[in-house]
């Protein structure tokens, strides 16, 4: 059978064309534009060399802060979601009454629009009349009532907390699926050797979940680096630029007509993610080794 004839390349042409035109090409020409003074205020385009990159990395502007915020957001939310998700998964994988109800509920935030979750929490976290502070005051914990999204010191923490609220159930669900797939005999075998609960977790559960964990971590890192909706709905980068991440910053530059700055930040992100993306894709496409 002639493979080239039976599986003609043009079957893939549509997907390749659309993906290339709307995803790859903007990224590539964006790198080119990052070396110019492109803006909404002039029709002429000048080559400015590395000037835009120098502005970003000189530390005189806020740009570096947007990048570090994005990385911090990615790190904190991914680690928290994974640790909490793993904890819940181990605790709740069996012995739970109404388990389908519980799993359905925990997964729920993952299917709702992120924007809507963000908007809902702007009300809940309102310092004066929000549900969280009213609740804290009602049970006598007044000192815990904070200006969640307004206080520059804790606003970014609040944003990350809402995102963790949204994402834990997803990881938990994936890990429960993974845990339930672990053959019982492994646990029986280590039980014979007298393993305690921690050892069972450390030497059976955790190694068997390695691939699921790798995949969920990769997906969370990708999500974190590209986060927009959550920040936009909760704080829109404020107060000041305290909670600004790359995509919200790019959106603001875009509306101010600062195209060169916008495309420079986007390109830094593009190059960074294309490089780490290569390794991530390797993890995602790896066939699981049967142990």
């Amino acid at each position: 059978m002639n493979k080239a004839k039976t599986y003609p390349w043009y079957f893939a042409a549509g997907a390749l064309l659309i993906y290339t035109v709307f995803s790859v090409i903007p990224g590539l020409i964006g790198i080119g534009y990052a070396f110019t003074d492109w803006s909404a205020y002039s029709n002429e385009l000048h080559f400015v060399g590395l000037e835009n990159f120098a502005t970003v990395f000189s530390g005189k502007s806020d740009y570096l802060h947007y990048i570090s915020n994005t990385l911090l957001f990615t790190l904190i939310t991914t680690v928290s979601k994974t640790v909490l998700g793993l904890l819940f998964a181990v605790a709740l994988s069996e012995g739970i009454k109404f388990k389908n109800f519980h799993r359905g509920v925990m997964y729920l935030p993952s299917v709702l629009p992120i924007l809507v979750t963000g908007l809902t929490f702007t009300s809940i976290l309102n310092p004066k009349v929000g549900f969280l502070n009213s609740f804290l005051r009602a049970i006598g914990l007044d000192f815990l009532a904070q200006k969640w999204l307004v206080d520059p010191k804790i606003a970014f923490g609040s944003v990350m907390a809402v995102d963790i609220w949204r994402g834990v159930g997803y990881i938990m669900t994936m890990l429960i699926v993974g845990i339930l797939a672990i053959p019982r005999v492994y646990y029986e075998a280590v039980a014979v050797d007298g393993a305690n609960a921690w050892q069972r977790f450390r030497y059976v559960t955790l190694p068997m979940l390695r691939q699921t964990l790798a995949v969920t971590i990769v997906l969370n890192v990708i999500y974190g680096l590209k986060v927009f909706d959550m920040v936009y709905a909760l704080t829109n980068g404020g107060p000041g630029h305290r909670t600004e991440v790359m995509y919200t910053a790019v959106f603001k530059m875009m509306s101010k007509g600062l195209y060169a700055e916008g495309t420079t930040i986007s390109s830094i992100m593009f190059i960074f993610m294309a490089v780490i993306g290569y390794f991530m894709v390797k993890i995602l496409t790896k066939d699981e080794v049967v142990e």
Partner: peptide, 13 residues
């Protein structure tokens, strides 16, 4: 193609 899951969109360009 799969790399597209990772690379960010440059909305400006």
């Amino acid at each position: 193609v799969v790399l597209g899951m990772v690379i960010p969109v440059n909305y400006v360009t």
